[in-house]
Amino acid sequence: MHISEGVLSAPVLLTGAAITVAGCAVGLKKMDYDRIPQVAILSSAFFVASLVHVPIGPSSVHLLLNGIIGLLLGWAAFPAILVALTLQSILFQFGGITALGVNTVNVVVPALVCFYMFNYAIRRENTFISLGSAFACGFLAVFLTSIMVGISLVFTGEAFMEVSKLVVIAHFPVMMIEGFMTAFCVVFLKKVKPEILGVAHAPIKSM
C-alpha cells in the first residue's frame, strides 16, 4: 500500500495531494475535540499495523486496518492516516513524502466508502447482520484499497487489469484477516464499549 517515491507521475501525485488536503480539512472540521484521543490511538494502531507483514509471492503485504479505522473515525480517518503515513515514510522509508497524498487517498477513501456502507448495519442489534457487515467492512476496505493502488499505477504504464489482479490476489489473505479482525473488534466493542460505535447514542432496533 506504500507506493514508493518516483513511481507515479506528477498529475497523479498532485491529485492525491489535493484530495488529501481537502479530506483532512473536512476530517478536522468534523472531528469532535473529545475524540482526539481516539483518533490518536487509531492512528498509532495503523502506524504499527503496517509493520505486521505477511510474505506472499514476490512481495509481502501488511495489515491495513482501514476498515475498522474508517468505521470508528469516519472522516477523521483522513488526518489520522495522514499522520501515521507521514511518520512511516520518515522513520521507515515506507512509501515516499511525495507519494504521501496518493497513499493516504488509497487507504482512506475505501475506509470512508465502507463507513457509509456499513455504518448502520453494524450498529444494529442483530448479531448476525452486525457481524456479517463488520466482516464485509474489513474485507471490502482492503479490496478497494487494492483496486485504488491499481488505478494509481495505471498512469505509470502498468496495465490496470494485470496490476489490480496481482494486488488483489496478494492482498486476499489480508482481506480475510482484516475481515475477521474487524468482526472481532465490533463484537468486542459492542459488548464492552457500545458507545464507541454510537450504539448507545442512536440505537437502531432490528427486532
Binding site: H2, Q38, S44, A49, L51, H53, S60, I196
Partner: peptide, 24 residues
Amino acid sequence: VIAFFLLTVLYLTMTAPWVLAHKV
C-alpha cells in the same frame, strides 16, 4: 480498550517471525 488492542498488535510485531518492513 484500544491501548490493549494496540499493545497486542505491537506484541505481534515484536515477536512474529514475519516482522518486515515494506521497503525495497
